[in-house]
Amino acid sequence: MILKAAVTAEAAGMRLDDGAKLLFPELSKAQIRRIIDWGGCTISESLVRVASRQLREGDLVALGVMEPERCVEIVYRKEDLLFEDGGYLAINKAAGINSQRTPYQLKGTVEYAVECYLKSLGSKEPARVIHRLDRGTSGVMFFPKHKKAATHISYLLKEGKVEKVYWALVADVPEQEEWTVDAPIAKLNKFRYGVALPGREARTAFRVISAGKGATLIEAHPFTGRTHQIRVHLAHSGLPIVGDATYGGEHALRMMLHCRSMAFSTRDGKAISATAPVDRAFRQVCQDHGIDLD
């Protein structure tokens, strides 16, 4: 939820946190300060993270209100990385956090944490989000360390030259061991996508890894990079992902979709890859269905 209000004559000259309390009486001072600290406040569309900022009459203040449980501090250290060299680094994104900043949040996103890590190395480069994972999806995310690396990997992603492997748990047994979905994807509403015309070309190959009790672990290879592609193509196949309520999946501890690995080659032909282990919740849900990931 985003709240907006113009600074009145009464609030003009006040500190941002005091003035915001006057403009948004439904919020506590602590809530307002948390929103400011976590990057959910803008003044006339510019991000402001200083509670003592002085307000001027006519300023448009916007506050992004999010659930307290989403305020999770993320810090990446060298030992946390899946891969790092002079051009790229890779992290294992946790389920339930955002890949990049939103109108509600900067701090507590992968983008912010990676930028903080780069700063710790003495770099002035921003964290460039050249591909992203849905909030409920975990796994490998690569970040370029400089503009040339960003240009190269962005080209590879656009041309389908980055090999991506996902694991997904579905609550059924597929009729085939291997199959490919070649079906266009279109936006249906603000939150959902689906196989529809007109839509953007999308192609995903699937393979059964292991069948358990009422569920199957699937390996997915997306050849294109459409929003919600694997989720939509599995739902289209009659196999919604466990935990994916948006597309009809049964309830679970988390959405059971994980980017297991990514691989590509640098400009000079060096092979780069990263593989991400699954988290405890993913492993537990698989075990509940009789699937041992070991």
Rank of each mutant, 00 (worst) to 15 (best):
Q105S: 01
K29H: 13
D288A: 13
Q176M: 12
F206Y: 10
G194T: 14
Q229A: 04
T227M: 10
I36S: 06
G40Y: 00
G40A: 07
A220P: 01
A215N: 05
L188H: 07
D85F: 00
G58I: 13
G248P: 08
R280W: 05
I291C: 04
P126N: 06
E219K: 14
P222C: 13
V65G: 03
G13N: 04
L81N: 05
K213E: 15
S46T: 10
E219F: 08
D244A: 00
A186H: 09
A252D: 03
V195D: 11
D294R: 12
I32S: 03
V75G: 06
R283F: 02
E69R: 14
C71R: 14
S52D: 13
G214D: 08
V110H: 04
S99K: 05
Y112L: 02
R280D: 13
A150I: 01
H289M: 01
A263R: 02
A271P: 00
A90W: 00
A215E: 05
T180W: 06
K107E: 07
R101V: 01
I36L: 05
R132Q: 07
I185W: 12
E26F: 04
I36F: 07
E178C: 14
I32R: 02
L47A: 08
L234G: 06
E67R: 13
F83M: 01
K187A: 12
T102R: 01
A20S: 11
S273T: 04
S123P: 03
T102W: 00
Y155L: 13
I43R: 03
G225P: 08
E201R: 01
I185N: 10
Q31R: 10
E175D: 15
L60Y: 07
R70E: 14
E57F: 09
R231Y: 02
K187S: 14
P277D: 12
R33G: 02
Y166C: 07
G58E: 10
L106S: 00
G248K: 01
F142N: 05
